[in-house]
Design a protein around this nucleic acid. Structure first.
Length: 341
DNA sequence: ATTACATGACTGTTCGGGAC
DNA sequence: GTCCCGAACAGTCATGTAAT
């Protein structure tokens, strides 16, 4: 009794045909010219013997792995599972598999993750890790690997990207806060090395300017890196520098949680003393206390579009530096209210 | 006897070419 | 219209050959 996996040859032997015939039966999309009678025998034998395709052997011949490498910056960030779902659903429909690597926001991890995926001969890459200036991305471009960025993009728009309208989204939520009557509004931004961090800051500034509100330098604090600790420190710095703030708009929901903590530490309540807003509308954002007013981005769709784009590139389509901008929507919940005074 | 290098077998699958 | 033949793919490992 051998443990050797069943191959096309085994099926061919059993049925009495050539392996290539078996291959054509089991790959109907290759334009199989096989009689129904033989095809039936082959499929039956394949089932009886428990055949499953050897993807390595197929890759050897076709130079295609039907595998896409996906690199994300932080496995613990609830933003990414819905994006990943969009990627996986779309890829699997097309017969592709995603392999996931997490960089933990560490450039060294990122490089290793990319190297591993490339060594495994992925057909394409989807990166959620891109910085505005990104050497790893530049190298992938130079090596002509089908590559799509998701959520974040590079400064020179040299790589196709599927991103949210971060400027518009942040402007929208800031204007919601302004419309409630707030005038002293602070911003906790993401790292300015990231397109999301920079665009969301610009959206905040655009809203402030449009309403003739002062852009005080002290009212803008950067949380870098994007960690819980940095978020809370940023919120504390913001409240310390401007005690008259009545609202804080943050660049993502996790930063908003940091603001909640900082408010509580100062004995302030949200939204009675200070209104707070988030961004992304991560899963369970409605379970925050209070439920967070935020900007809903199209997470699933973002992943799905990125996957569609990379599949088009694999087919040889020239998509150029095509960027896709997805429209966000405002979700008003309990963390925003008119200022007390 | 040891070392360096070359050659070829091997894996499972696919696909162009050709036989009937 | 059906089916077969056999090369080719990338990389590893064993074997062969020649030089030291």
């Amino acid at each position: 009794m051998s443990n050797r996996p069943v191959t096309l040859r085994d099926i061919a032997k059993k049925v009495g045909v050539h392996t290539s015939t078996v291959s054509r039966v089991l790959n109907p999309d290759a334009g199989a010219k096989v009689s129904r009678e033989v095809a039936l025998k082959v499929t039956r034998a394949a089932e009886e013997l428990g055949y499953s395709l050897n993807p390595f052997a197929r890759s050897l011949k076709t130079n295609q792995s039907f595998t896409i490498g996906v690199l994300i910056p932080d496995l613990t960030d609830p933003l990414f599972p819905p994006i990943m779902r969009g990627i996986e659903d779309t890829l699997s429909e097309a017969g592709y598999t995603a392999i996931l690597a997490n960089s933990d926001n560490d450039p060294d991890h990122e490089r290793k993750g990319l190297e591993t995926m490339r060594a495994r001969k992925v057909d394409g890459l989807i990166l959620a890790t891109a910085q505005r200036k990104d050497r790893l991305v530049a190298r992938c471009v130079a090596d002509r690997i089908p590559l799509v960025l998701v959520n974040r993009e590079v400064e020179d728009h040299s790589v196709p990207a599927v991103v949210n309208d971060d400027i518009g989204g942040m402007r929208m939520v800031t204007e919601h806060v302004i419309s409630l009557g707030h005038r002293r509004i602070g911003h906790i931004s993401g790292p300015q090395t990231l397109s999301t961090g920079m665009n969301r800051l610009n959206g905040y500034l655009a809203a402030m300017r449009a309403h003739g509100l002062p852009e005080r330098h002290a009212d803008m604090v950067e949380a870098a890196p994007l960690t819980d600790a940095a978020a809370q420190a940023a919120a504390e710095a913001l409240l310390a520098s401007d005690p008259d703030l009545t609202a804080i708009v943050t660049a993502n929901d996790m930063l908003a949680l940091g603001a909640y903590d900082a408010l509580e530490a100062r004995g302030l309540s949200c939204p009675d003393d200070v209104s707070v807003t988030g961004f992304n509308d991560i899963p369970f954002a409605d379970k925050f206390k209070p439920p967070i007013t935020t900007v809903r981005i199209q997470k699933f769709e973002m992943g799905a579009e990125a996957a569609r784009l990379v599949l088009r590139m694999i087919k040889g389509e020239n998509v150029g530096g095509l960027s896709m901008l997805l429209r966000p929507t405002l979700v008003v919940r309990g963390s925003t209210a008119p200022p007390r005074r």
